[in-house]
Amino acid sequence: MFYIYCPHCEEHREEEEFHASGQAHIPRPLDPESCSDKEWGEYMFFRDNPRGLHHELWVHGIGCRKFFNITRDTQTYEIKEVYKIGQQPKFKASNSTLVEGVK
């Protein structure tokens, strides 16, 4: 059971109020029509899925209903940091494909 700090509500709440929405920082291709099948497939389905630090998108589903990011260790489950969409993480994920400066 996680005890998660919501950066929008600015308080710790129990995990049941939240929902994990998968890997964070996946930019939608700017021009989907010009994507190859491979590029579009990679965007839609392929994920880093590291054993170690991972940037994740979470939503405070039955709280403020806003999205935010968590950097979490998928091995120890330790939450390293919580930050709002648009901010950059302080910790770097294991085998990260995160492009510098991507919002």
Binding site: E15, E16, A20, H54, T74, T76, Y77
Partner: peptide, 13 residues
């Protein structure tokens, strides 16, 4: 459990 995890344990709820 909805989050990624390699810890072979999940959440109580």
């Amino acid at each position: 459990d909805g989050y990624n995890g390699y810890g072979q344990r999940g959440s109580y709820h």
